[in-house]
Design a protein around this nucleic acid. Structure first.
Lengths: 358, 358
DNA sequence: TTGAAAGCGTTACCAG
DNA sequence: CTGGTAACGCTTTCAA
């Protein structure tokens, strides 16, 4: 029985399950040129006026052997990868992971893949990640910038990557960003507490230079000022997430300021800590203390009493981000930086309540 | 003034900020061969007995211009990428995202990068993702398998990728996996409720064929059986996460079974829905109803009353996974499939309580 | 001790 | 209409 060498190797390869079929193998097997196969696979057959017979032959064979192009090689050659990086502070935060999911969907519809990663707010890690992805030819970056990322992002911009910041931004940089109306919403949130009859309203935030945090604080301060009330701010230096000490810092703060009748949290995990603290202090909500938090969370609806919150427009953020980055990637002209600021929504629950006059 | 063409292009490139320096440019600039540069960059200088002077010259220049190797090209050539894919059902689930973070740390220490992705439990999406990553030469996969992924995973195995399953596994497949003692813990959880004096214990789970869900149910059933109690199981068909209808199915179930005195949830988000339902039904915990949930969550400690739960050993899972996959990737011998089953911990809080005899 | 050159799997230019 | 072939940036064998 005659077995030619070609088939023989074929058999070996099948047994080893090692060899991946390449465009070259297809060309050889079919006796046509690599170029032709490439054109057909990439849907340029019509454009290149390749005969229908040829197209069918190649397509059938490709389907039969289940050929998959090697993306690595494609990227290396074309400089594009159809990959967008979604780099946030912490992907386990539900705000970010929800946006990630929405973005992924939109990306997929446009032929893009999303790769997520978390910076943990460390510039070093973020820089490392950016470099890695750059050297893998990703097309664009969606980033919640940490401090110290300015020059990296400037580089990305000048190297013509798609870049769009969100949640916060870098004022010194002319880079597109999508944020929410932090200041305005916090003004309104504070006003809501004041309208309810609260006089001694504490604002609990993180010690942070990030724009969104500063804007939130600003909104609170402006509201207090315009109603003639003294601001009372606590900036938590570290976010100790150990359950054991959760809320201890806030508790100490509240012990010193016994007269506080409302607390406004700048972000939801601070509120979780706060709720722990209130419990240890036996504070009743909303009778002893009214509670409002920035950044809604499904727990706020489940907690008893339910907690009022300022909800960010998550779907809208995701849409705007994808629209923005796809625009950048599809247009030939250099990046025009755009700024979008989206409105939030105050969701009133049981933790904030108009006080009875007495 | 004489400007040679070489410098001229250099200037143009700087202005355009487009050109990336390659190993070739370095070699040309320094007047040495590409090979030499490559050896030095990859730390093989000593091994190849390259002169110290040469090493210093190249290293200094590399540092000066901030050269970064192109990972794409490296992967294409070497077939390796130092990337491990972490593919779970839903990265926004805190169980998975916490593991992701722990894994990432370990991976980083070993020179690997982690890419996360979510399957949303759709085989189609999972297959798509696996194919994409395969064609990007990733080295290994850590997967929570969905149904219908059997043949894909078999392929991965035979193509010598590192593969390790977790959370659940595929019995028909000889593939390494890391899981927890689902059955045993649910037996013990159920026994805990029985010991507390509960007689009519409902088990609320998802309609699912996944191994971990089936094992949890089994543990409950075995416990009920061995204490002579009738099992009462509700399998929620769909996980409607819309807040509006949250818990409605569970509420209907409880309305029919008024005599239930304890509920054991097979996973934490079912418990969240359940808590919603209990509230609408005005059930008091633990007096009317004792509550226990599989898979602990920080919210269980915060809720009032706090909810007892069975905690999975998250750190241990992450460690075991990384150890397993690194072993696979570093060893030359074909994958030996290993199975690890880790113990859980019952965390007793206020929702489960020994009933007073009366 | 160093260098030339062959590939990895594609794409795309140019020829015929 | 189809085919050669030079890149893309790197690793690695072999030769000098």
């Amino acid at each position: 029985m005659a077995v030619d060498l070609h088939s023989f190797y074929g058999i070996i390869e099948v047994i080893m399950k090692k060899k991946k079929i390449s465009i070259k193998d297809i060309a050889k097997e079919l006796g046509v040129s690599i170029t032709t196969v490439s054109f057909i696979i990439n849907g340029k057959a019509k454009e290149k006026r390749i005969s229908d017979a040829m197209i069918k032959m190649v397509e059938d064979y490709v389907a039969k052997i289940g050929y998959r192009p090697n993306h690595l090689a494609q990227s290396l050659r074309s400089g594009k990868s159809k990959v967008i990086v979604f780099m946030v502070e912490d992907i386990s935060n539900s705000f970010f992971s929800t946006i990630a999911r929405l973005i992924e969907e939109k990306a997929f519809d446009n032929g893009y893949k999303i790769i997520y990663c978390s910076t943990e707010n460390e510039a070093k890690k973020a820089i490392e990640l950016i470099e890695t992805f750059k050297s893998r030819n990703v097309d664009g970056f969606i980033i919640t910038p940490t401090l110290g990322l300015e020059s990296q992002i400037k580089n990305l911009l000048s190297e013509n990557f798609g870049v769009i910041l969100f949640d916060r931004w870098i004022p010194s940089l002319d880079c597109s960003h999508v944020i929410v109306e932090n200041e305005k919403s916090c003004f309104e949130g504070t006003k809501h507490l004041i309208d309810n009859g609260c006089k001694r309203i504490a604002f609990i935030t993180l010690e942070s230079d990030q724009t969104q945090m500063k804007d939130r604080l600003l909104g609170y301060q402006r509201a207090m000022g315009s109603f003639g009330l003294d601001p009372l701010v606590f900036e938590e230096p570290f976010h100790t997430s150990s359950e054991e000490f959760m809320g201890d810092q806030i508790m100490d703060f509240l012990k010193i300021h016994e007269d506080v009748d409302a607390v406004f949290f700048a972000t939801n995990y601070l509120a979780f800590e706060g709720l722990h603290a209130f419990r240890k202090l036996d504070k009743r909500i909303p009778d002893d203390l009214q509670v409002l938090s920035f950044d809604d969370h499904f727990f706020f609806g489940l907690y008893q009493p339910s907690i009022s919150a300022i909800a960010q427009p998550i779907e809208l953020i995701a849409e705007t981000l994808m629209e923005g980055i796809l625009n950048q990637l599809n247009s030939k002209i250099p990046n025009q930086s755009t700024r979008v600021e989206l409105p939030n929504q105050l969701i009133q629950r049981k933790s904030t309540l108009k006080k009875h006059m007495d």
